[in-house]
């Protein structure tokens, strides 16, 4: 059999990359099931000698973990739904409407993707405080209800839909909302799902903004809780911190595994190379 050298190099490269990327995940899972003693003495052992779920029990005993998971979910869910809605509507207008200044408006909007978080952090903080949403999960969600990335990705996807689909509907006196719900959304469903997953995972993993807004522990999100366990506040028990890490990453990992096909397609279509 002829060996394809190019393909072999690619496989070796991808294999190494997979190991590098999987390593922290396996490391966290393995150590979360070890006692602190075993972890200290045998940190590189990937199969614990005496597996224990004590670390997980400890986590749930010290913090209202159900509540924290619920908070994280509620924020991520709200952000995902609203961001998806605003992105769908804006992308529809940018693709199928003709109006003066469309290109300028679009590129201005897209350029906001390049503004670093640190620039908008303080104005957003002042706004959220003024609205009385300090220390509220809604204060975390509010500034994220619309976003340029979603508009960009959905616009790319909607541009592949022939204009005649919308024109037929217009001639037949179908309103914009019906066009969106009956025609466009079903046709760009894969892109909507994948951008939704990206929104959800981003919000789920968010740290800096919640840390600014949320003060009381019952309002915490998972990433804040995780920080507690690796700082002095929650004790520096390394295996417990690993248990929190595992809990935090379960949801994004599962979502990604289920919907990875859509996500890859959406990015391939948008011209962004990952």
């Amino acid at each position: 059999m002829k060996i394809n050298v190019k393909q072999m190099i690619a496989h070796i490269f991808l294999g190494v990359l997979t190991i590098v990327l999987l390593f922290p995940i396996i490391f966290a899972i393995a150590n979360s099931f070890k006692t602190l003693e075993e972890a200290t003495n045998h940190i590189w052992r990937f199969i614990p000698l005496n597996p224990t779920i004590k670390n997980y029990i400890h986590v749930f005993e010290t913090l209202p973990f159900g509540r924290i998971t619920w908070n994280t979910f509620l924020i991520a869910f709200t952000v995902t739904i609203f961001k998806s809605l605003t992105s769908i509507i804006a992308a529809y207008a940018f693709v199928f409407f003709d109006f003066k200044g469309k290109r300028l408006l679009y590129f201005t909007l897209i350029s906001t993707m390049f503004i670093p978080f640190t620039v908008t952090m303080i104005p957003n903080y002042i706004t959220v405080s003024a609205l009385g949403l300090n220390d509220s999960i809604w204060g975390v969600a509010l500034p994220q209800l619309a976003d340029a990335l979603g508009i960009f990705l959905l616009r790319q996807s909607m541009r592949t839909i022939p204009k005649s689909f919308i024109e037929v509907a217009k001639i037949e006196k179908v309103g914009h909302l019906r066009i969106l719900s009956d025609i466009l959304v079903p046709l760009v469903k894969p892109a909507i799902i994948s951008t939704g997953i990206i929104f959800f995972i981003n919000s789920w993993n968010e740290y800096v903004w919640p840390v600014l807004i949320l003060k009381s522990k019952e309002n915490y999100t998972l990433s804040l809780a995780l920080q507690m366990f690796i700082s002095a506040e929650g004790g520096t028990d390394f295996t417990v911190a690993m248990a929190v890490s595992v809990i935090t990453m379960i949801v994004p990992l599962v979502l990604y595994l289920i919907f990875q096909r859509y996500i890859i397609n959406t990015f391939a279509l948008s011209g962004i190379k990952g």
Binding site: S164, E167, V168, K170, I171, E172, K173, V174
Partner: peptide
């Protein structure tokens, strides 16, 4: 508006 012109169209 297009919808009020009583036309049908084949693309």
């Amino acid at each position: 508006e297009s919808g009020n012109r009583n036309v049908s169209m084949v693309f």
